[in-house]
Design a protein around this nucleic acid. Sequence first.
DNA 1: GGCAGTTGAGTTACCCGTAACGTTACGCTA
DNA 2: TAGCGTAACGTTACGGGTAACTCAACTGCC
Lengths: 345, 345
Amino acid sequence: MKEKLIKNNKVSLLQVARAAGVSKMTASRVLRGEGGYSEQTRTLVMQKVDELGYLPNRLATVFAGDKTSTFVGVSIPDLGNEVFAHVLEGIDRKLGSFDYQSVLGLTQHTQEEEESWIRTVLSWQPAGLILTGRYHSKRATEMLRNAGIPIVEIWDLNSSPLDLSVGINHFDSGFDMGRFLIGCGYSKIGYVGTSHDTASAATTRLDGFCKAVEGGGGQVAKQLCLHDTATYYPGYYGTEQLLAAGSGIECIFYQNDAMAFGGLQYCTAQGMRVPQDIGIAGWGDLPIASVLDQRLTSMHVPHLKLGQTAAEMMIARLSNEPVDPCKDIGFRLIPGSTVSHPTNR
Amino acid sequence: MKEKLIKNNKVSLLQVARAAGVSKMTASRVLRGEGGYSEQTRTLVMQKVDELGYLPNRLATVFAGDKTSTFVGVSIPDLGNEVFAHVLEGIDRKLGSFDYQSVLGLTQHTQEEEESWIRTVLSWQPAGLILTGRYHSKRATEMLRNAGIPIVEIWDLNSSPLDLSVGINHFDSGFDMGRFLIGCGYSKIGYVGTSHDTASAATTRLDGFCKAVEGGGGQVAKQLCLHDTATYYPGYYGTEQLLAAGSGIECIFYQNDAMAFGGLQYCTAQGMRVPQDIGIAGWGDLPIASVLDQRLTSMHVPHLKLGQTAAEMMIARLSNEPVDPCKDIGFRLIPGSTVSHPTNR
DNA sequence: GGCAGTTGAGTTACCCGTAACGTTACGCTA
DNA sequence: TAGCGTAACGTTACGGGTAACTCAACTGCC
């Protein structure tokens, strides 16, 4: 790119104004359409804008006005997990329609990554932040409190959020699934997931699940937390590992539907019948479930809507409209046919 | 947030300097660690930084230095399609490790969205742009040329890029798949996809595919381009539509593996055997393929690596290192077992 | 003819950090 | 003790746009 040589070819407002034979201020007024100029002047200025290919410098605007930008920082653990890709899609589409831009941060499920990302992104004077999860490092929390900008914590419902929160109660969703599986007559149940972090929604879910199972007289015979991403293949080999011990597990609960599908495939490949020989339950109700010949037992969570809602709350706050600080987006159990229902017995 | 009332609580360098009893410049030098101060001064300034919770304002830095920011604009068509989620993940991880941030733009496959996003994002003085696809509106192209920043066009390999390009030759990948299927002995082949845009990689792929099939004496009997997202369920019902006509189609090529899996499920549900009764070929080699009991015929494309490479090229350019302007990331045909091979006949 | 009101345009200060240069103070040498 | 070098720090200008203010020219009305 030879243009780099002329790197100061950025056309500024002053140059437009000069070309049009007016002052910087007049040009600025025309650009902002706030009146105080003649139609003739307007036409002339706009013509020069076109001719010179002037693009406003928003940094200068923010800088001058002591305002915030139109950036919204969005932290997401990872995109290999379809769930979060959908959440992000919901966020960015909604933000975009209000002329805000997402500044992405993939925090890889670690608080250190999150803290360092928060520090960086705050230095860009964002209009607000949307963070996945409710657990942040001490220094991060401090920075967030002092930032003086709207903050939406998503995914994990937080009854005492830093500012705003939208998500679901993961403990309850795990609990409900546990109770449901107990109700189906299972007593020895396994779990396959990937989270090895105590401060994560998946862990909270598992806690709720265990509580319900144990409270219902069952037993979470084995919990497998793989060091891997929560997708198909880990579900497959995780199931293999889980069942290898031969501990008489009757049903497996997975961290999400992708893993559950992996597990389903493993079981089928081994000649096991689902649900007669083993029960399979997923979580999240991912799109893949729509084409399986069995309805996967799962927990429906409106991912896209969750993202949209987070963005809407952010925008409401930015527009100084009243916002309910805590929003439970809800979940819904899908009984499906990959576990055996008592009525079928 | 009551803090909004004190919205000017932003601590500036001047305040730190005053608190430490030094000049702004001294404080600045300490912060940048470029020497020219005593150890005593350094300690004092850093202490005040901590006390006051000072966070640098990077807008001011960029503004002052006439430099570019550490933003990289990244345009992606949509995230519902797993393929692009992986590409984005590759990009953001790599950029992040070099302290650059992605500013996301979901362009929904339209040039108008892209143009408007480019205009906005350029006004933030990004360090560079990564764009999906090689087709841009006239005005967008103009803006990009005048921007004077590195631009990486990804996905669709572009032999004469605006600046840099990395991707694959979609025509060839379609052509290879077409030739392969013809070699398998198929002659009446169908296609199911979602793209209704002539300026898209999927369309280019289909063109290559048709050319190979027709050149090989076969026939692309029916092409279905749904107005939907390229995921599982459209693959399912698209297959239903395609086969409803009863035109004797022997094999179906899909826009990607997710759609192919949807199609596979439809066919199986209808009692058809794959590949004996019908052949199924996908594209992209998505993770789901790793757990199917049949190896899905597909085209492997290193999505994550594509994203990483794009980010690496961007960083090289930004560091003034030499970069090969065109990089073919390549693809690899996966014969799989969902089409009947001549050797098996 | 004088004055208020309107319209267009110019002036200045400011936002925050950085580069370039100017100033001060101190220690060393002759 | 004058002279000089240099470490340490201060001062100033700048960048692009905005807000608030001033100023000039022209209109219309009494």
